[in-house]
């Protein structure tokens, strides 16, 4: 009888962890890579990037990825799509507007974030409908 017990499931644990990781990012605590996007530095945690993006998975998964401190991503008109994606990784919220959706779509395609790509397609498609 003494072995019987309960599992206590903290239902908001994943969002609490993600929220703390986002705060660590904003404060630059334990961030271990700088993404250069059009010359603009974005600090992040490799562990979060690799968990969210197929592109980062292929970059960081091997031993060679440990030594990558700075990573240049494509600049140009697509560059403004990267910051919303980084925010999404750390918050689960994807900010889209008709003006930014094409850039976010391009960045998500580059980063191999298929589900975000699909969400962008749905958003763009819906914005064309009357």
């Amino acid at each position: 009888e003494g072995a019987l017990g309960y599992v206590r499931e903290f239902t908001r644990h994943s969002s609490d962890v993600l929220g703390n990781l986002n705060e660590l990012r904003l404060r630059g605590i334990l961030t271990d890579v700088t993404l250069l996007v059009g010359g603009q530095p974005l600090r992040a945690h490799k562990a979060v990037l690799i968990a969210c993006s197929g592109f980062f998975y292929s970059i960081f998964r091997g031993r060679a990825g440990v030594g990558v401190d700075v990573l240049s991503l494509p600049g140009g008109p697509e560059a403004r799509g990267f910051a919303p994606l980084l925010d999404f990784m750390y918050t689960s919220r994807l900010r889209l507007s008709p003006a930014t959706a094409p850039a976010v779509l391009a960045a998500a395609t580059y980063l191999q974030m298929e589900h975000v790509v699909q969400a962008c397609h749905r958003f763009i498609q819906a914005s064309y409908e009357p």
Binding site: A3, G5, Y6, E9, T11, R12, D16, E23
Partner: peptide, 22 residues
């Protein structure tokens, strides 16, 4: 299931909150 008889949901915060950047 190793003596587990029930799952109890905890709706409150699960970990400490890192202070927000000022």
């Amino acid at each position: 299931h190793e003596g587990v008889v029930a799952t109890v949901k905890e709706a409150g915060r699960s970990i400490h909150e890192i202070p927000r950047e000022e």
